[in-house]
Nucleic acid binder design. Structure first.
Length: 597
RNA sequence: GCCCCAGUGGAGCAGCCAGGAGUGCUCAUCUCCCUGUCAAGGAGAAGGUCGCCAGUUCAAAUCUGGUCUGGGGCGCCA
């Protein structure tokens, strides 16, 4: 039907007859001559309708409007001197139209198909097929393809096998809320959609398929965020006869391969931080390493302070720490008060601010400090004149780290303190491994120890002894990849010893019967010669979003959902008929609901 | 469950703080003009119950309460 794609033509094609298909991107009617920008997925080319070339085509072109789908036949020719458009890849040439066929007309679209304006996202999603016509979205989806393609070529080369796992499976008791699918043939029973193929891939290892990967959809029924959708895509992989270093090596090499293939960037070796160091320096287990503003301990500088709030915190073994915000020492009182409120909302009892000025400290607490303390405080915070020191004190050092870490990230973004770098610059990509996570975290609400990763995670040998006596001291063989403040991947070496796995369930308060009922198939498998194994699962949506320079993953998902897990395009979720419910042996306690609008 | 931001012709905004006639800007749409534009240009036109429901007021886009939708975040997300 067509001879070329719009964006592929170049000056070297001059003199050829081209048959092009696409959409009218724009129209410039000068009376005797009419210009059309013709767009397809490859790009845009200018088509000229002139009565000099074809009066018939020129007449026919008068009805053309934006988003009409057309076919144009004409000669490719160099543009006249002085009319070359440097903004277009095809800008040296144009097509002189001899024939025009209109495949279909278009109503005026609900928004303009260009990248010049930010459109209300609900409108974009309702007309996603129009939104996806935009160059930005096509570029994002093509980048997604390039990344997935690079991933597959890498694992092919490494001898991995891609194997699918079921979408309809059984619920796992811990972790995120499950999406359920009612069974018609087993009244009252439900499948769950997988939160990850975790146990299936471990069983592949028991099966001897020692290098598995899969690009797989996963489902978690939790509230949405910029980096979270209810259904999302993971690169799931698992290897046998490996230790932690082996998995890290393959995963890091894979990311370097992907960045090289998809972005033409040679990544530096990943930084490696322990969880403890990441929390102490950056207040986060997904630190953004593109800027400084590290958390500093003020404890030593204030060791003999008489300021009550600090004294009581230090005496109780708490922490007094600070970050220095460059150049913001003169921030308005109103903004400082807002920061205090923000810190409180993050869980801190309060926030002490201190501007470093040429006349000394500008702070509500300035008068309470001695001269030495003021100097020591500034030095300890590593602040310079003009900076703003933000201090958080709490009996729980975790609260201090979390609060300062969140403020660090937010303020760096708000005040433009993150260096802007081109995506082709290797320095734009601050990958890091976070290792040596604690195995457990204390759930204060439930008064119990929960796994930070999942219950199948291995433990560092010389910390296993604390499993029953002091769980907080157990270190896991788990690891995350972070990039510019996002968690990109999470993985671990698994437990391959049945006795050990049972011991862990016991420590988690899961009875033998319960474990057998819910994970029996795993425990059974562990009886038949399981190999040492481990793996990792990078999030594809996040990888692509960061690679594309986007700040939310909806921009790299063709048909995403809104913050209320609603799809404005299809109207999902939607009610079903009473008959459909009855066939599934279901009743709802909710009155008939038309669903989201 | 909670906090914050937004909702004004088809799109993107301003107007709101300090109430006084739906006022304005850019783009799109329609008509006309124009043979070298390219986010074309010129002349003109049409198009809006200011998300919705209450309340305060002589008077509400503007103030108050509620609610819905979208977005960011906290909780949640092994």
């Amino acid at each position: 039907m067509r001879s070329h794609r719009c964006g592929d033509l170049r000056a070297s094609d001059g003199g050829r007859t081209a048959i092009l298909c696409g959409w009218v991107d724009g129209r410039r009617d000068h009376g005797g001559v009419t210009f059309i920008d013709l767009r397809d997925t490859s790009g845009i080319i200018q088509v000229v309708f002139s009565s000099d070339v074809s009066a018939r085509a020129h007449d026919a072109a008068q009805e053309l409007r934006g988003e009409f789908c057309i076919k144009v036949t004409g000669e490719v020719r160099a543009r006249r001197p002085g009319t070359v458009n440097d903004n277009l890849a095809t800008g040296e040439i144009e097509v002189a139209a001899e024939e025009l066929e209109v495949f279909s007309r278009s109503e005026t679209p609900p928004f303009q198909i260009d990248d010049h304006q930010e459109i209300e996202e609900s409108l974009r999603l309702k007309y996603r097929y129009l939104d996806l016509r935009r160059g930005r979205m096509q570029a994002n989806l093509k980048l997604r393809h390039a990344i997935i393609s690079a991933i597959r070529s890498f694992f092919d080369e490494e001898g991995f096998v891609e194997i699918e796992t079921p979408m309809l499976t059984r619920a796992t008791p811990e972790g995120a809320r499950d999406y359920f699918v009612p069974s018609r043939v087993h009244p009252g029973s439900f499948y769950a959609l997988p939160q990850s193929p975790q146990l299936f891939k471990q069983l592949f290892m028991v099966a001897g398929l020692d290098r598995y990967y899969q690009i797989v959809r996963c489902f978690r029924d939790e509230d949405l965020r910029a980096d979270r959708q209810p259904d999302f895509t993971q690169l799931d992989l698992e290897m046998s006869f490996v230790e932690q270093e082996d998995v890290l090596e393959v995963a890091e090499r894979m990311f370097k391969h992907v960045w090289r293939e998809a972005l033409s960037v040679e990544l530096a070796d990943f930084v490696r931080l322990t969880f403890a160091e990441s929390m102490e320096r950056f207040g986060s287990d997904k630190p953004d390493l593109r800027f400084g503003m590290e958390i500093k301990d003020l404890g030593p500088a204030l060791s003999s302070t008489e300021v009550k709030i600090f004294r009581s915190v230090l005496d109780s073994g708490g922490a007094v720490k600070a970050i220095a915000v460059p150049g913001r020492g003169a921030l308005a009182r109103k903004d400082l008060d807002a920061l205090v409120d923000e810190a409180k909302a993050l869980g801190a009892g309060g926030l002490v601010w201190a501007g470093v000025t040429s006349e000394g400290l500008r702070s509500p607490l300035a008068k309470l400090f001695g001269d030495d303390e003021r100097a020591g405080l500034v030095a300890a915070a590593e602040a310079s004149e003009g900076d703003l020191i933000l201090v958080v004190a709490d009996h729980d050092p975790g609260v201090v780290h979390k609060t300062l870490g969140a403020l660090r990230g937010r303020l760096a973004g708000r005040f433009g303190l993150i260096p802007e770098r081109d995506r082709s610059d290797p320095e734009a990509w601050k990958f890091a491994w976070i290792v040596d996570f604690p195995w457990f975290e204390w759930d204060e609400a439930e008064k119990r120890w929960d796994p930070i990763h999942h219950p199948f995670t291995g433990m560092v040998e010389d910390t296993v002894q604390y499993l029953e006596t002091d769980p907080g001291k157990v270190i896991s063989k788990s690891y995350d990849i972070t990039l510019n403040g996002w968690e990109l991947a999470s993985g671990s070496i698994r437990i391959h010893d049945r006795k050990m796995q049972e011991r862990v369930f016991e420590a988690l308060g899961i009875s033998r019967d319960e474990a057998q009922a819910k994970f029996g198939f795993l425990l059974d498998a562990l009886r038949f010669g399981p190999p040492p194994h481990g793996g990792i699962a990078p999030g594809i949506d996040r990888i692509v979003a960061l690679a594309a320079g986007e700040t939310n993953i909806r921009e790299v998902i063709a048909y995403p959902k809104t913050q209320t897990a609603h799809d404005p395009l299809t109207g999902a979720p939607a009610p079903v008929t009473p008959d459909q419910l009855a066939a599934l042996h279901l009743q709802t306690t909710h009155p008939p609901n038309p669903g989201p609008i």
